[in-house]
Design a protein around this nucleic acid. Structure first.
Lengths: 352, 352
DNA sequence: AGGTATGATTGGAACGTTCCAATAGGAACA
DNA sequence: TGTTCCTATTGGAACGTTCCAATCATACCT
């Protein structure tokens, strides 16, 4: 934790060239150099060449901070993700970055490794950097923090609704997704369907609620079984183990997300169960992980990359079109059937 | 591709408070506010409280650009990764960010989605931002670009050696790792060992060389089989398919990395082969993917997170301790045996 | 009471750009 | 040859901080 104060050694590394150095070498004024850099049309070809030559000779690079300071804008959007190890977040980040590039922005990513405090740090750093917009693909943050950020810069929250009046949000309908999952199992003949929950994030809670309501709707309320899990493989594994200690095993398991489902899968296979012959398994997010042929996990699809792109568009609208009222998009999730769901085994299926 | 020039609407969003606003509200000078922000000890408690109160009331946040401009330092390190979807890169990024936080720095991530041009853009943006250091966990970049960056700021290259005299590098011994993989197969009794190569990145080439040399060393040179693959699952899958078209199948496959191995796994399983009964499979990087119990891929371990941390340390040494001579660390990879390697099937094993 | 040491506070310069109003240098015209 | 009108070029102010030297206040000592 030693944070040295001021012992930076600049020795050896020469001062970086500035616009003045370029101007001197090219024999023009700093203003003209600035014009060349910004691609102003009305610079004579001769001077332009001289300037470009000087820029090249000096390995000059404009200082984004100085520029940002006077322009009061950075053309940077910050992306905060809670967990880089969740492939869904990568899809989102990738979508944001692609669209940002398309719109003349740069996207920078910061992550918090699922720690609340580092998440707020990440947001704070971006705000101090004066990013033009902020995309939060993170579950841990509370509304107060979001609101605070939102007072400073356009903010889009991904994956959870927000009550903040000046913040856009982009979510999938988690309750609906959970209902689709349950429905799929029911349609295959399952009646004993368990849920490995995702913890206390908003998304996880909605999925749980969706599961419970759907079970109720199908008259299976008293068959509902929820065990604690989480959004990581390890937590899913624990949830799966927990499930195995129960008196009677379910014939299908709906896991909070794909990572969690993989964990459950491990636990079940370890116990000698075969998926989907003995137990069906369904995840959420339809990440690249679920799509791995070797895993081939039935999952609820959420278009992460598209959502990332859309989030960037929403920021753009606020920045360039001056939109001020909040938008809240809810995307309908869909079912992707792969190899981990099937009809329940005979004896179990007819039992209920 | 429409990049609007200047139609930014600031309407509605008020000008952000500056240090002067805080000073006015607190009834002190800007300098005193600055001192409070930087935690200077010799501010009287009364004034400090007044300043903190004003900061809070105004939702003031120091402008990192203005600060960076005068301090000529940002306390930011840039991390460029070629592919966020490769879990190995996440480990690296995570390691860098953790250690950066520890040392009082912030790490920001940019990615290029495996496109050469966007990779150079990412580097260029970071340099314009005047990051204090740059960590390149990317394969595509050429030495010229690295050298250029290195002239401006300390650079650590990860995962490949570099000839640039002023750039540190941190790699694992890919040739050795490949040799370990081959050795492992040989020790299990395999003689017909194929390699699904990783393309033209430096790391991939070294692994291939390592494979070829090892095969030679074991007197299996004429049994060498290399098919084209890549560092992604899709390319691995193609490599696996390609392998299947060959006259005789190998009894073991060494894939360029874990992602590639998963692709190969898919292709082989799809063809009705059982791993490791019919064919053994070994990957590289020992990512979280390989560790998934359901996958349980034998792999060559490379400590991504540690390497990320070490990379950050190397930057720190240059920034704070003025080190100028280049360091090149080579880490010894190790074998992690899981469930995808076993003795070859009888008939094949005895055939050679 | 006067001098001095100590500590808190302040104003100004600098960081490296962009933006804008002002200027210079022609060309075109009378 | 002088006036007008362009167009290319320039200098100065501003952006929001930090740093430093200078100032102010207070207490202490003789």
């Amino acid at each position: 934790m030693a944070i040295p104060e001021d012992d930076v050694k600049t020795s050896g590394r020469h001062r970086k060239p500035t616009i003045f150095d370029v101007a001197r070498l090219a024999g023009v004024s700093k203003s003209l150099v600035s014009m060349v850099i910004r691609g102003d049309e009305r610079v004579s070809p001769a001077r332009r060449d001289a300037v470009l030559q000087a820029i090249n000779d000096l390995n000059y690079r404009p200082n984004a901070m100085a520029r940002g300071l006077v322009q009061r804008r950075t053309r940077i959007v910050g992306v905060v993700v809670s967990d880089l190890r969740n492939p869904f977040n990568e899809d989102v980040a990738s979508g944001v970055l692609t669209q940002a590039a398309e719109l003349g922005y740069k996207g920078l990513i910061n992550t918090s490794d699922r720690q609340r405090e580092r998440e707020e740090d990440a947001i704070e750093s971006f705000l101090e950097l004066r990013v033009d917009g902020l995309i939060l693909a993170t579950s841990r943050i509370d509304d107060r923090t979001i609101g605070r950020a939102s007072r400073a810069v356009p903010v889009v929250v991904l994956g959870r609704p927000t009550s903040d009046v000046s913040t856009d949000s982009l979510t999938n309908d988690n309750e609906m997704g959970a209902a689709i999952a349950v429905e799929h199992c029911v349609s295959l003949g399952h009646r004993s369907i368990a849920h490995v929950a995702g913890g206390d994030s908003t998304a996880a809670r909605s999925r749980r609620t969706g599961y419970e309501r759907a079970m109720e709707r199908f008259g299976l309320a008293e068959r509902s079984t929820v065990v604690d899990g989480g959004f990581t493989e390890a937590e899913g594994y624990r949830g799966g183990r927990e499930l195995l200690t129960r008196r009677s095993l379910p014939t299908a398991v709906f896991a909070a997300n794909d990572l969690c489902a993989i964990g459950v899968l491990n636990a079940l296979e370890e116990a000698g169960l075969s998926i989907p012959r003995d137990i069906s398994l369904i995840g959420y997010d339809n990440t690249s992980l679920a799509a791995l042929r070797h895993v081939s996990l039935t999952s609820i699809h959420q278009p992460g990359e598209d959502m990332g792109r859309k989030a960037m568009d929403l920021l753009f609208e606020r920045i360039h079109e001056g939109r001020t009222e909040a938008r809240h998009y809810v995307i309908a999730p869909s079912l992707v059937v792969r190899s981990t769901t099937a009809a329940p085994p005979r004896e179990a299926g007819s039992e209920g």
